[in-house]
Amino acid sequence: MQTSSRFPAPPAAPTVDAPRTLEIAAIPADGIGHDVVGAGREVVDALAAASGGRFSVNWTEYDWGSDYYAKHGVMMPADGREQVADKDAIFFGAVGWPTVPDHVSLWGLRLALCQGFDQWANIRPVQFLPGITSPLRAADEKDLDWIVVRENSEGEYSGFGGRNFAGRPDHQEFSVQSAVFSEYGSERIIRFAFELAMTRPRRKLSKVTKSNAQQHGMVLWDDVFDRVAADYPEVTTESVLVDAMAAKFVLKPGDLDVVVASNLHADVLSDLGSALAGSLGLASSANLNPERRFPSMFEPVHGSAPDIAGKGIANPLGAIGSAALMLEHLGLPEEAAAIHRAIEETTRRGVLTPDVGGTATTADVTRAVIDHLALVPAAVA
């Protein structure tokens, strides 16, 4: 592993040599978050039950979210982070509800956890699953598989700025929103992306930038990338403007492997990638604190979907895939791989929710994934 003195190698995933109980905080939050977190828990519990005592899970559920806000005026209690700080991981649903302004719900819960626990690396795989029709014609001709690595602690979502002069007449209030790019924050996510690229057969890393228009923050981003790239001569690199990268996702998806981007750019591009794969309901993600000083958080990429909340038709695969990422992070790679393969078998056999052209319910898909775990030799260590 290539490292600098400021960025020592992060701790490896813990090995499971003896029976182990995972302490997981479950935060369904809002809308379909309750459905999909429940689905993910069922799959993990099924694996644990079949593990022969290799591992078990102790779930602690927290009722934070927009309903909590309606009762208490905050999305989570003031000591919320302290309540979950000693957990092995956080399994999160989705945040947002029509009765709460989006910036209040996001900053009051999800970003409060991500930034408070320095979960600076956000990993978002783009997965093209069998049995799901992609709107991208190239998906029928190529084996498409790439990962978006998102800087998750600063950039455009730093929260620096404010609104002023609200008392002026004739709508003369103004606001300032500043993006923050630090050399430290840029280097650690870029180095993380290079290390990830080194583990993949193609060893290619695409950097997303907008330094032609953002001549300060993104030029620093570019400069740090070029400096770190010198430590990884085995990795092929390219620099692509964010607008050109959006086009590349559609026109040349087979050219993608690992994509590293700023907080905002990666957020948008990963949603585009998941839409090309068929649905945002398929997209999993991991908000990592690679040093393991704090718990990492695992969540589907989709929102709370108030229009289908409570109807039992939400796609649980993004959450179930996120549960697989969680188990891998916690030292259970065989179990994680079993979930991924069970997801593929489920979609291959056409057990699909309405968002991807099927008629199955959330419960149907969850049960199919659990049933298909038995078909995977690696399901039980």
Rank of each mutant, 00 (worst) to 15 (best):
G167C: 06
I132W: 08
G159K: 11
D243W: 05
T209M: 05
E151P: 09
L251R: 15
H171C: 04
D145V: 01
S186L: 10
T236K: 14
S178M: 12
D140E: 15
K248H: 04
G185P: 10
P253M: 08
M245D: 13
P125G: 04
A244P: 04
A229P: 12
A247G: 03
G155F: 03
S186H: 09
Q172V: 02
W221S: 00
V180S: 04
V228A: 06
H171M: 13
P201K: 13
M198I: 01
A246Y: 10
W120F: 13
W146R: 01
H171A: 12
K248N: 05
Y157E: 10
D231L: 07
V148F: 03
E187F: 01
Q215S: 14
V149R: 06
P253I: 09
K248Y: 03
F192P: 15
T209F: 00
E151Q: 15
R191S: 15
N152Y: 07
F160H: 11
L251E: 08
V148G: 06
L129T: 03
N152I: 14
K207P: 00
I123P: 00
F249L: 14
L129E: 09
F249H: 14
S182W: 06
K252P: 00
K142F: 03
V235S: 00
I190L: 06
M198T: 03
G185T: 05
L241G: 07
S178P: 02
N212Y: 12
A247L: 14
R227V: 04
F249P: 04
R168M: 14
S182M: 03
D226W: 08
N164H: 13
